[in-house]
Amino acid sequence: MSDWKTAFRSFYYEKADPPEDIELPPEETALLVIDIQNTYLETDDDPDEARRWKPFRERLTGKVIPNTRKLIDLCRDKGVEVIYARIACLKQDGRDRSLSQKKPGFNYLLMPKDREDSLIVPDLAPEDDDIVVLKTTDSALTGTNLRLILHNMGIRHVIAAGLFTDQCVSSTVRSLADESFDVVVVEDCCAAATDELHRNELTTINMIYCHVVQLEDIPGFLGS
C-alpha cells in the first residue's frame, strides 16, 4: 500500500495528524473519469511542441489510460457507478462555450460533441448505461447537472481520475468538496502537462478538498 496518509503534504498540513482510514461504500460511491479524450492523444505538427509535450503523452498512454482502465474495471466489479465527463460544445461554432474555452492559447477548446476528437479514448469508452456529462467549463460539477445526478443516486463519495490535474480535475474536486462530497483523487490515474504541475496541484488540494491516493489503495477502501 502507498503512504497516502503522509504524501503530498503542503505547508498547511505538514504537521497535521494522519487522516482516518478511508471507507467507500460502493452503493454510495461513484468513479468520475474526467476529460480523457481523443484530442489529447494527438501529436502536434510543430516538432518543438511535439517534443515539449512528449512526457505528458508518455504518461497518458503509459500510465494514466492503463491505470484508469484497471480502476474502471475494479469499480464495475464492486458495484461502483462509473460516470464520465468530457469537454464538448453543443453548437458547431462553439458559441455555447464558457469564456475560459474561448480565450486564445492552450485552453482554447472547440470540440463539437459528435466530433471524434471530443470522444472518450477507445480504451476507456463508456458502456451503454454509463452516464456521460458534457461540459464547456473546467468543473464537471458547475457546468453540468452532475450535482443533481449524484444526489439523486445517493452518491456521497467520488473517486476522481483524469486530465488535467491542475485544471479540470482540480476545479471539479474543489467544486465537489464545496458541495460536501467526500473525494479521493487517484494520483496515478491523472496527469498535468508536466510532472511539476501535477505534483504541485495535488499537494495544494490534498487534505483540504480531497485525499490523494494511488490506484493500489482503492481496493482496500472498497472493502476488498
Rank of each mutant, 00 (worst) to 15 (best):
D128C: 09
D128Y: 12
D128Q: 13
D129N: 10
D129K: 05
D130S: 11
I131F: 08
V132H: 00
L134A: 01
K135H: 07
K135G: 10
T136A: 11
T137L: 07
D138C: 12
D138A: 15
D138E: 09
D138V: 09
S139A: 14
A140L: 13
A140F: 10
L141H: 03
T142M: 07
N145T: 06
L146D: 01
L148F: 07
I149W: 02
I149C: 03
I149T: 08
L150K: 00
L150F: 01
L150G: 01
L150P: 01
L150M: 08
H151R: 12
H151W: 08
N152I: 06
N152H: 13
M153P: 00
I155A: 02
I155W: 01
R156D: 09
R156K: 15
H157D: 07
H157F: 08
V158E: 00
I159M: 12
A161M: 05
A161L: 06
L163A: 06
L163K: 03
F164Y: 13
T165Y: 00
D166G: 15
D166P: 14
S170C: 15
S170F: 05
S171N: 14
V173C: 06
R174K: 14
R174I: 08
L176N: 04
L176Q: 04
L176A: 12
L176K: 02
L176G: 08
A177Y: 07
D178M: 13
E179L: 10
E179P: 00
S180L: 13
F181Q: 02
F181M: 04
D182K: 10
V184T: 13
V184D: 03
V184R: 04
V184A: 11
V185R: 00
V185D: 06
V186S: 12
V186L: 11
V186E: 10
E187S: 14
D188Y: 10
C189V: 05
A191Q: 04
A191M: 05
A193K: 11
T194N: 15
T194D: 14
T194P: 15
D195Y: 08
E196C: 09
E196K: 14
L197T: 09
H198E: 05
H198V: 12
